[in-house]
């Protein structure tokens, strides 16, 4: 059971009050992009054992999207942060490094 705090309304709830929205920080490749870029945007997803970044929506609450960083093995939630960003905040990455030394996720580490 994940316990998430919505960074928009500040409510802390368990996961059934939210809805998962897939991997975070995807770069969209649309018409005009190369086939390889488009394929990786459309199909290639991380499936890590450990640190993972995801999009979530506070569907039974304020209705807003946000980002969450969590561990896929222990279900520990490292933190949540607003949706209006292209990368997690440095403090969150530092906090993850303290708990999971040597972690990496896509280009982040």
């Amino acid at each position: 059971m994940l316990i998430l705090t919505c960074p928009c309304c500040g409510v802390t709830g368990e996961e059934t009050e939210f809805h998962a929205g897939g991997e975070a920080h995807l770069t969209r490749f649309g018409p005009g992009s190369t086939d390889d870029d488009f394929e990786s945007y459309l199909f290639m997803r991380e499936n890590p054992k450990g640190v993972h970044f995801e999009r979530w929506r506070h569907v039974y609450g304020c209705g807003k999207w946000f980002h969450a960083a969590r561990c896929t093995t222990t279900l520990e939630v490292f933190g949540t942060y607003p949706a209006q960003t292209l990368a997690p905040p440095q403090e969150l990455c530092d906090a993850i490094s303290a708990k999971r030394p040597g972690w990496s996720w896509r280009a982040l580490s």
Binding site: V11, G13, T16, E17, Y60, G61, C62
Partner: peptide
């Protein structure tokens, strides 16, 4: 005040 779900409905 809290918005949440009750069984299956908001």
């Amino acid at each position: 005040f809290r918005r949440t779900r009750m069984a299956q409905v908001p």
